[in-house]
Design a protein around this nucleic acid. Sequence first.
RNA 1: GGUCCCGUGGUGCAGUUUGGAGUGCACGCCGGCCUGUCAAGCCGGAGGUCGCGGGUUCAAAUCCCGUCGGGACCGCCA
Length: 576
Amino acid sequence: MRTDMCGELSANDVGRRVSLCGWVGRRREHGEHLAFVDLRDRTGYVQCVVDGAHDLRSEYVIRVTGTVRHRPEGTVNPNLSTGEIEVGDCEVEILSVAEPPPFPVDERIDTDETIRLRHRYVDLRRDRMQRNLRLRARVNSAIRRAMEEQDFVEIETPMLIASTPEGARDFVVPARLKPGSFYALPQSPQLFKQLCMVGGIDRYYQLARCLRDEDLRADRQFEFIQLDAEASFASQDDVLAFITHAVSAAVEAATGDTVSDIPRMTWLEAQERFGSDKPDVRFGMELVELTEVFAATGFNAFKAPCVKGIRVPGAADTTRNQLDALTDTAKRYGAKGLVWMKVEEGGTISSPVAKFLSEPELSGIAEALEAKAGDLLLLVADERDAVRHVLGLLRLELGRPPVNEGGFQFLWIVDFPLFEGLDESGSPIPAHHAFTMPHVDDMHLLDSTSGDDLLAVRSQSYDLVVNGWELGSGSVRIHRGDVQSKIFGLLGITPDEAQVKFGFLLDAFRYGAPPHAGFAFGIDRLVAILAGEENIREVIAFPKTQSGADPLTNAPTPLEPEQLAELGLRTLPPKA
RNA sequence: GGUCCCGUGGUGCAGUUUGGAGUGCACGCCGGCCUGUCAAGCCGGAGGUCGCGGGUUCAAAUCCCGUCGGGACCGCCA
């Protein structure tokens, strides 16, 4: 139907008779016999000169056959890639009429997202979505190529699997042939990829669709895509190298630049300096240790296991109202309180609590935080993890740059703790999952009866972070029965329970399991960052809203009684 | 489970603080004029359940309560 694409025509095509197909953009009519029509396809716009455009309307789908010619002197449009030329002497064929679009395809002004999603097929015509989805396709392609260059083989794993109690809430699917039983949709192909290792696949990867029934956020949808990978006879360093190569290929597809090396930071350092396991290192305002400064303090609020502070440069003009609001925010984050201090000209510290602090304490704060006149200092005292958490969130709130500023600061976070806490019965809670290999240097601590010792055990697990977003995580897996038994024992999982929950994996490991390690990172998040988008919905063709609905299809919907009956289901009445 | 913000012709906004006639702006839409525009221009016109329900009031887009929808975040997401 067409010989060329609108946006690809140039002065080189002058004189050619071309056929173009696309949507009618803006029309500029000049009386009965001259009109300009901007014709749009996926490549861009070109101006067509037609003899009257009365029967054309916005978003009509048309085919234009005409001759490419230079624009007359003085009418070249430098803002348009095809602005040097136009298509004249046009025959116009209407392929499809269109009602006026619910919002302008031309995106000078932002449109409410619900309306965009309800008419996503119109929204997809816009440059932003075209760019983002095409970027996503290039990134996917580059990642596949990078993994295959490294001898990874793409294996597809099932979508209908058994539910396991760990981790996120499962989406479930009723089993028609076994009423009362359910499949779960995979949160990740975790167990299957390990089975692939036992199966001698050696290097597995998949752009895997994962589903988790948890609350949605700017960076979280029910369904998302991960580059999921696992390699046999591979160490942590090997995996990091494999993934770095894939990430570099993705970045190159987006920007042309490669990523040669991704720096590493231990989990402990990330927590201490940034109050997060996914630090945004594009800006300073690091957490500063002040516990020692208050070792002998008389101020009750600072008699705590940990005191830390952050310095907000030049923010001493923050009003009392704003500071009260900030204190409320800190409390919402779980702080007992927030102490603020303003650094006056000359270095004097003014604060509601200054009168409770000694001179050495005040000077100690100023020195540790490298306070300068005009700065605002924020201090939190509490248990160590609470202090990190609150200040980490305040730091982001007060200093975080927009997502598209400061380049891409990739970071490996390594040496995560194996356990993230103790449950009521004193058993440790796994930070990653029950198959994560402990750090070789900490193996001996597993025999300790001390909770503190157990919580100090590091694991061979690692996260990939960019600009404060967690892209993904992975670990070296346990492949030895004795280590696995010890971990299960520590977790309070009896051999019988382990057999019920993970029997098929443990069975598989008895038949010759290679040492293996793997990783998975979120494609949606990576593409969003590369596209400069704050929200992954902007890089997903048909996303859900924060309440999990699709304004386009109206999903989720109730089922007909017959359909429920066939599945052996009965629904409860809505809650009153 | 919780906190905060938003909801006004098709689109984007102003109006809400301090209640007084559905008032205004830009775009779009419909009709007319217009032979070199490109966010064309000029003239005219249509288009409203101020998300929904209740309350206060002589009077509610505006104040109060509830509810629905959307968004950001905390919890949650091994």
